[in-house]
């Protein structure tokens, strides 16, 4: 129920940001469509802790700025590699073991790897990732496990704590 209410609030914010209307008729139409969407989502049984990973929110505030900074650094490294005439790349494939327990944590980790230029997750099986790295530096940075630890810390609690 908590998740459904939050979904309703989030949809209301999104609706108002996209439309910007304040006339009563349009607002009531918007409210009607939000209720319909929440009802359909509830019937589809997709409202749970996995689609709304609330337990990640407090630590996520710390994680995402760090991720953004990592992305900027990696971007500059890879851009330097690409513009050099010799293009010193060492494409390689490495295996990683992810330490996250919940699916949402694993998805966050895999997407963070892909979002950082220089490393792309090309295969996932349970918690074993297959990662394609463009340079030795990118591979070494990932193999140090810093990102893994941070995502695990953000995940915090395991998937059992979700309520309906």
């Amino acid at each position: 129920m908590l998740h459904a209410t939050l979904l309703g609030f989030a949809l209301s914010a999104l609706w108002w940001l996209l439309s910007g209307f304040t006339t009563p008729l349009i607002l009531s139409l918007g409210a009607g469509s939000i209720v319909a969407v929440v009802w359909i989502a509830w019937r589809m049984d997709v409202i749970d802790h996995e689609s709304h990973p609330l337990h990640m929110a407090p630590k996520g505030v710390l994680y995402f700025p760090w991720l953004l900074w990592e992305i900027v650094k990696a971007n500059i490294d890879i851009a330097k590699v690409i513009v050099q005439a010799k293009m010193p790349i060492h494409p390689q494939v490495m295996d990683l073991t992810a330490g996250q327990k919940s699916d949402a944590g694993l998805v966050t980790y895999a997407n963070s790897i892909t979002l950082t230029p220089g490393t792309v997750t090309i295969g996932v099986e349970a918690n074993a990732f297959l990662v394609h790295a463009l340079t030795d530096d990118a591979a070494a940075g990932l193999a140090s496990g810093d990102m893994d630890r941070r995502v695990s810390a953000m995940e915090g609690m395991s998937s059992r704590d979700g309520d309906g």
Binding site: I78, I82, I89, T114, G118, V120
Partner: peptide
Amino acid sequence: CRMHGVGI
């Protein structure tokens, strides 16, 4: 490798 370019 080209995926890294698209990532940028």
